[in-house]
């Protein structure tokens, strides 16, 4: 398995420095190793789907990238710079708050449970960070929030509170809120898993639209194999804290090489 994980870079990855690089990244909780020397390069503009059984470390990969979890070893590179450390006199030292904030600005994340601010309207949810973090004026951030909410199909729900919206609508607000910070990398962690089946499509449609219209690098953890197949440039199958197999969706879904991948895909297909 290890040799596959560390095998040659997939065909989809272009030359030049990647937008995101996990370099021997290790993450453990106590003695329990969640991710073991993870190696993963994601090119600018690439859309990577992360699949795998529950507990295989998929969420952890995204959370480390969003700086929500500290890492125990290795280096994560984003846009050519180390994420949680910085160069000082040639050596890598732990990043200070300023560096972390600058790096975080390149990344946006959408959560499984939306995590919208319940006391703010959809529009206010999208304005908060542009106002306070980017220093945009109220009018500018309002225009930006309005534009993005229109883009996700919620132009008529600007003044609604999260509790007044369906799950699918809330998740679309969350996507607009993340986009309002103009990130280069977007992380999606099972963004349709908490939704009723009939609401999944509207959220996937929005993600398709982002893929087509915006120049974003995307990492998405998903159980929607059909969507991964059609949307992703590359699919990574995680198993036991490692990338067990990865490749273009046609290859990975069509003729998986690894027995574990085959087992997982069989199980998922049976469930649906």
């Amino acid at each position: 398995m290890t040799d596959i994980a560390k095998g040659p870079a997939p065909a989809a990855a272009p030359t030049g420095s990647p937008m995101v690089r996990f370099d021997q990244v290790t993450k453990s909780y106590g003695a329990f190793v969640v991710l073991d020397q993870l190696e993963l390069d994601v090119a600018a503009g690439e859309k990577v789907a992360i699949i795998g059984p529950s507990g295989s470390g998929k969420t952890t990969v995204l959370r480390m990238l969003m700086t929500l979890e500290p890492i125990n070893g290795g280096v994560i590179w984003v846009d050519g710079e180390p994420l949680t450390s910085m160069r000082r006199n040639g050596a890598l030292v732990p990043a200070d708050a300023r560096h972390l904030r600058r790096m975080r600005g390149k990344i946006g994340m959408v959560f499984q449970h939306f995590n919208l601010f319940p006391h703010m309207t959809a529009l206010k949810n999208c304005m908060e960070a542009p106002c306070t973090v980017l220093g945009l004026s109220k009018a500018e951030s309002e225009a930006r929030g309005r534009e993005l909410l229109v883009m996700v199909g919620l132009g008529d729900k600007l003044q609604h509170y999260p509790a007044q919206l369906s799950g699918g609508q809330q998740q679309r607000v969350a996507i607009a809120r993340a986009l309002a910070m103009r990130p280069k990398v977007m992380l999606f962690d099972e963004v349709t898993s908490a939704l009723d089946p009939e609401l999944v499509g509207e959220v996937l449609n929005v993600i398709r639209k982002l893929g087509a219209e915006l120049d974003l690098t995307m990492l998405m953890v998903t159980h929607q194999m059909g969507f991964a197949k059609e949307f992703a440039d590359r699919v990574c199958f995680f198993y036991g804290g490692k990338i067990c197999e990865q490749g273009p969706p046609a290859k990975l879904f069509g003729s998986p090489e690894n027995e574990r991948t085959r087992q997982f895909l069989r199980a998922v297909l049976e469930a649906t």
Binding site: M66, T67, L68, R101, R104, G105, I107, G108, M109, F111, N115, L116, F117, E128, A129, T132, V133, R177, A178, M181
Partner: peptide
Amino acid sequence: EACTALNLT
């Protein structure tokens, strides 16, 4: 976590 992801101080 949403606040961290949005880079709020």
